[in-house]
Amino acid sequence: MSNRSLIGEFTKGLIEENATFRMVIGMCPTLAVTTSMVNGFWMGLAVIFVLTFSNVFVSVLRKVTPDEIRIPVFVILIAAPVVIVELVMNAYLPDMYRVLGIFVPLIVVNCIIIARAEAFAYRNSVIRSAFDGLGIGTGFMLDLMLIGAIREFLGTGTVTVGSMVFPPKPLFEPMAVMLTPPGGFVTLGILMAVLNILVQRSASKKAKVEA
């Protein structure tokens, strides 16, 4: 049982238990869809929806789910919101649905979701699980948007948000490689290393202050 406040359940997903950079799970979509910030946003939104509902479902049924078959049960409980997302996206955002491709249905096997079901929702109350899902999902969305923004900026020279383009004209010659797999792998690897260094620094500072 978690003993955080509800707000704490939400905010821990942003930094402390950040899906991409702290727990390092769910890498396939993290790389596949982050060729632009907008893609990252919609993929993130889909994951927030699925994660919140799967957490709620798992938590609601946690007392009646036998331990031995909990994983198959989780999978079904996760697949239901995924199918909803697929249908809704296909109906209202067909272009984005095509861009994200098989990575929307693949949310079902995204380790983040099953990990939250197993590690959190199966042991905590419904409200807590909902906040946990919202928080982890939002953190994941911000990760995707950050990586997407970096790759889009370096790869096309601009970042597009709705009808706004920033900067209006590329300031340098865009590097097409950033939109390809090698660029994605290297970007994520460097970002992780940089964040690790920042975390180490703040940890050693904290240790010094305490000493």
Binding site: V24, M27, T180, P181, P182, G183, G184, F185, V186, L188, G189, I190, M192, A193, N196, I197, Q200
Partner: peptide, 22 residues
């Protein structure tokens, strides 16, 4: 270096490998 151990280095290496596979 500790900051690179594990995933960061693995991802960057995968990037270099995928560069070769291009």
């Amino acid at each position: 270096p500790a900051a690179l151990k594990g995933f960061p280095l693995a991802l960057i290496s995968t990037g270099l490998m995928s560069l070769a596979f291009l």
